[in-house]
Amino acid sequence: MITHIVLLRFPDNMPGARIDELLAPFLRLPEVIPGLVAVSAGSNTSPEGLHNGYRHGLVMQFSSALDRDAYLTHPAHVRLAEPLVAALAHGVGDVAVFDLESGDR
């Protein structure tokens, strides 16, 4: 299992409704991308104050690294990622991605 974590740093003045509009379609991707098991999205709720401006994120569960890799170039993902990245002040500079692999070793 691969856990794909995407942290996003939206501009401070971006309305919450616009952020929701950009993130919500990702929740439906498991319906169209094989191997994508689950998606959650939302805002940071940590009380630690260590977000470094990354106040929103997506967490995705993939069956395998091969499924994750196929997702990266899947047309449905690309179609959603392009406007999301364009809405960030510094494009991909406002995105952090971290993947964890779990399972039998």
Rank of each mutant, 00 (worst) to 15 (best):
I33G: 08
I33M: 15
P34I: 09
P34Q: 15
G35K: 01
L36C: 06
L36G: 01
V37A: 04
V39D: 02
A41M: 11
A41H: 13
G42M: 10
G42E: 14
G42K: 10
S43N: 08
N44K: 10
T45I: 13
T45P: 01
T45N: 10
T45W: 02
P47Q: 12
P47R: 12
E48N: 08
G49M: 10
H51M: 15
H51D: 02
N52P: 08
N52L: 15
N52I: 04
G53R: 13
G53T: 15
G53S: 10
G53M: 14
R55D: 11
R55A: 14
H56C: 07
G57P: 03
G57M: 02
G57F: 00
V59E: 06
V59P: 00
V59W: 05
M60N: 00
M60P: 00
F62R: 00
S63M: 01
S64D: 01
S64L: 03
S64C: 03
S64M: 04
L66Q: 05
L66T: 01
L66I: 03
L66D: 03
R68L: 05
D69K: 02
A70Q: 05
A70W: 00
A70D: 03
Y71V: 00
L72D: 10
L72K: 05
L72I: 03
T73A: 14
H74M: 10
H77R: 09
V78G: 01
R79N: 03
L80T: 02
L80A: 06
A81V: 14
E82W: 07
P83G: 06
P83T: 07
L84S: 03
L84N: 01
A86E: 11
A86L: 13
A87G: 12
A87D: 01
A87H: 03
L88V: 07
A89C: 13
A89R: 15
A89F: 14
H90Y: 15
G91Q: 10
V92C: 12
V92M: 15
V92H: 14
G93M: 07
D94Y: 12
D94H: 15
D94C: 14
D94W: 12
V95R: 04
V97G: 12
V97D: 09
V97E: 13
F98W: 09
F98I: 15
